[in-house]
Write a protein that binds this DNA or RNA. Structure first.
Length: 613
RNA sequence: CAGGGUGUAGCUCAGCUUGGUAGAGCACCUGCUUUGGGAGCAGGAUGUCGCAGGUUCGAAUCCUGUCACCCUGACCA
């Protein structure tokens, strides 16, 4: 029979009852490996994905997924499908493009700003490429769901998303077009059976399952939840030194959070100071940063107060407050989320021009300058910036000058008594070594991670904005309560490479490896060797394993190097040596050795046991 | 967006200072030899030197502009 045999007659329908693995040949697909890493790649996963022939760049942050990558992505997607379906999700597919109008309705066109890909069609209609699909799905469901009886409902899709990131980077780790699983849940209530909390918790477990099944070492952390809901957001971080996110963890209680969200254990504070150093003005011209000023003053950054001027975010109700002064210790960073919670409205860094016009000596601001706008400003002091007995250095409220000997109780006695003017609250980012918020005596430790998943209690933000209501059993109208749950599928693949590789190449976990077994055919022209490969791969695929046969007419060294590079979990080498002994050479990719001879009738068993341990 | 860097063959890069027929290694094609960790020999093919202007008898090289890509920062799956 020739390769071009006449078409096989297929039955109209034949249910698949057993899973049969794929058998592919290197010579029939394309795996363009590179000897040298392309110059533009600096991150391990980016370099390896390029070198091993998984991806090619099309434009900044936009990539082709070549056959190997697509196989892995499909496996990750399948794991996600199984876990989403297990919690009652239904898969669907929404379009990538949508009318801008619905993003205007929720205000997200503005929130996303330039990150939103926008285009105009031939009729002049404003159109966007979806960064996520809350609007699209809410727009659909507000027409399709009319009764509480249809809830709860969980829908998801796996699709390319578009975000015009300011700076795409590190290959697939941050692209402008990327593959994402986005799920949305809809509820009548937050609590109780069928409520948001129940689904959120189920999703948390499903996400844990997904990442565990993908063979990833990960940590679930509390994340910044935005303006809607307290502890209602978690991120799933793949633990990896090269990750761009910082998470803090309490080794005793297990508490873990994104640095942006991480709480800090209680600290004593006091405005009382018994230091008698006088308040002294010092000329500090052209001092670049707080470190420079501190050095000039002969103190450390931790002896200084940093006063940051912020203002209410556009459009928020601030109760007549025009300026928010955040005071933290000089070596600390203001956390805008915590500050928002402290003052009760969202704040943004003040527009420098306006702040100067209002009298703030930007760069030299002290807590005293809040008085410049009496009745219209509030000063929020971090506990670490109010420690008794400390004499602070801070700005002098005039350009090019700082003061030393700042004493809270002496300098601001009257103001401190007015709790509506001066508040003390935790408003800084947590740092390694800070006290744990959950276990007294424990301190936070730091680790790096790659955010691959994020789950979120949305509440009614979108349903309110878009008018998605249902009637409950008492004929009362309710805004539908929503949750949303994202996984960066392409990022997950890259994170896996980032986490699991060595000097020679990738090391895939069995569950998401493009192929389970990589057969290196030493002599592809030798009929006997080819027959053994044929027979072995048939046996392996019948058992459900995916097999790649390297049948190229290349020298052994080239094939071994490429096998290491593309990183399949098991390599079987078919060569004269082992065949004479009645077997093939079997080597696990994660095993540093040279592999060992396995008798032919034990190869399948060996593969299965290697893959499942 | 600000700061920094790079654009020359499929990949890594040299050539540019001081203008004069566009190069190397690897990869690719043909042949021979070789065949268990990126082989050897011989022959061959490969480029609008990112693009557009300008200066010049002559521009990869000098000048101007522009585009693309990468890296460092605030956001995010």
């Amino acid at each position: 029979m020739t390769e071009h045999a006449t078409a096989v007659a297929h039955a109209p329908f034949s249910p698949v009852t057993v899973h049969v693995g794929d058998v592919d040949r290197w010579s029939k697909t394309i795996i363009p490996t590179l000897r040298d890493a392309p110059a533009e790649a600096t991150t391990p996963s980016h370099q390896l994905l390029l070198r091993a022939g998984y991806i090619r760049q099309v434009a900044a942050g936009v990539y082709d997924y070549l056959p190997l990558a697509w196989r892995s992505l499909r496996k990750i997607s399948q794991i996600i499908r199984e876990e989403m379906n297990a919690v009652g999700g239904s898969e669907m597919l929404m379009p990538a493009m949508a009318p801008r109008e619905i993003f205007d309705q929720t205000g997200r066109a503005e929130d996303y700003g330039d990150d939103l890909f926008q285009l105009t069609d031939r009729h002049g209609r404003a159109t966007v490429l979806g960064p996520t699909h809350e609007e699209v799905i809410t727009d659909f469901l507000r027409h399709a769901v009319t009764s509480y009886r249809q809830l709860p409902l969980i829908l998801y899709q796996i699709q390319s998303k578009f975000r015009d990131e300011v700076r795409p980077r590190a290959g697939l780790l941050r692209g402008r077009e990327f593959i994402m699983k986005d799920a949305y849940s809809f509820h009548l209530a937050v609590e109780g059976k069928g409520g948001l909390d129940e689904t959120y918790d189920a999703m948390f477990r499903a996400y844990s399952n997904v990442f565990a099944r993908c063979g990833l070492d990960f940590t679930a952390v509390e994340a910044e939840a935005g303006p809607i809901g307290g502890s209602a957001s978690h991120e799933f971080m793949v633990n990896c030194e090269t990750g761009e996110d910082t998470i803090l963890r309490c080794p005793v209680s297990g508490y873990a959070a994104n640095v942006e969200k991480c709480e800090i254990g209680a600290r004593a504070w006091s405005f009382e100071g018994n230091a008698d150093a006088p308040l002294t003005k010092v000329n500090t011209p052209n001092m670049p940063g707080i470190e420079g000023v501190a050095a000039h003053l002969g103190v450390t950054a931790a002896d200084m107060l940093k006063t940051v001027v912020l203002e209410p975010a556009p459009g928020v109700e601030s109760g007549g407050i025009d300026w928010v002064l955040a005071v933290v210790r000089g070596d600390h960073e203001v956390n805008e989320g915590k500050l928002r919670d402290a003052v009760g409205f969202k704040v943004v860094l003040a527009d420098e021009k306006r702040a100067r016009a209002a009298g703030f000596a930007i760069g030299y601001v002290s807590p005293l300058s809040g008085a410049l706008t009496a009745g219209k400003s509030v000063v929020v002091v971090d506990p670490d910036a109010a420690q008794g007995n400390t004499v602070w250095a801070t700005g002098a409220d005039v350009p090019d000058h700082h003061v030393t000997g700042f004493n809270w109780s002496r300098e601001m006695a009257a103001a401190l008594a007015d709790s509506s003017y001066v508040k003390v609250a935790e408003i800084r980012n947590a740092m390694v070594g800070d006290p744990s918020p959950r276990e007294s005596g424990a301190v936070l430790v730091e680790q790096r991670g790659i955010e691959t998943g994020h789950i979120f209690k949305l509440g009614c933000k979108y349903s309110d904005a878009m008018g998605f209501h249902v009637m409950d059993e008492t004929q009362k109208r309710h805004s539908v309560i929503m949750g949303c749950y994202g996984i960066g599928v392409s990022r997950t693949m890259a994170a896996c490479v980032e986490m699991s590789h060595d000097d020679s190449g990738m090391i895939w976990p069995a569950s998401i490896a493009p192929y389970h077994v990589h057969i290196v055919l030493m002599k592809p022209n030798d009929a006997e060797h080819a027959a053994v490969a044929e027979q072995l791969s048939a046996q392996l695929s019948t058992a459900g394993l995916d097999v790649l046969i390297d049948d190229r007419k290349e020298r052994p060294g080239v094939k071994f190097k490429d096998a290491d590079l593309i990183g399949m979990p098991i390599r079987l080498t078919i060569g004269a040596k082992a065949l004479e002994a009645g077997g093939v050479e079997c080597k696990a990719r994660s095993d540093p050795g040279k592999g060992e001879m396995v008798p032919m009738d034990q190869v399948l068993e060996r593969c299965l046991s290697t893959l499942t341990t």
